[in-house]
């Protein structure tokens, strides 16, 4: 595992977060949630800082990070793509859309393209069922996406 140099400013921000939770072990999940907000993901180095601040073992922090699917140790791409697999989107063919994204980007769910541009994840319902199937790229929502339209969406960001 290569050592990543975290920016001092962000580490300080993380330490402040821990402090705002009184460095309480019981707040580990909340702290990790905020930490992922700061860094975009939870690399080993971030987990070590959290463990040190909350006085818990790094193994324990890693155990929590790997238990909850929300937490990730892979950096998100510049343009994170989320495909809704909620009931409405699913019955209207979201899985085929997802398969097309996997094929076009050549990555699996939870992975990031080698150039760091795109990452792929799934979510359950964004509250836009009328537009199913729905895809989000960053904050932008795409409705009624068909597998044929996938290439065009990706092209917008290339």
């Amino acid at each position: 595992m290569a050592k990543i140099k975290l920016s001092d400013r962000k580490v300080q921000e993380l330490k402040d977060v821990c402090k705002s939770f009184n460095n309480d072990k019981g707040e580990l999940i909340n702290v990790l949630h905020k930490a992922q907000g700061i860094f975009g993901y939870l690399p080993a180095e971030v987990q070590e800082v959290v463990a040190h601040e909350l006085q818990v073992s790094v193994a324990h922090v890693y155990g929590v990070v790997t238990f909850y699917s929300f937490f990730t140790m892979t950096p998100k791409g510049e343009h994170p793509i989320s495909i809704c697999l909620g009931t409405a989107c699913y019955v209207r063919g979201a899985e085929k859309v997802l398969d097309e994204f996997k094929r076009v980007l050549n990555i699996q769910v939870g992975e990031t393209t080698a150039d760091g541009k795109f990452s792929l994840s799934c979510l359950r319902c964004v509250g836009a069922c009328g537009l199913a199937p729905v895809v989000m790229v960053g904050e932008k929502v795409y409705g009624r996406v068909s597998p044929d339209g996938v290439k065009d969406i990706v092209a917008e960001y290339n």
């Binding site: 818990v56 790094v58 193994a59 324990h60 890693y62 155990g63 238990f67 699917s69």
Partner: peptide
Amino acid sequence: TVGALSAVNR
């Protein structure tokens, strides 16, 4: 209180 081991993954 060594903390070398933890349950990981799910």
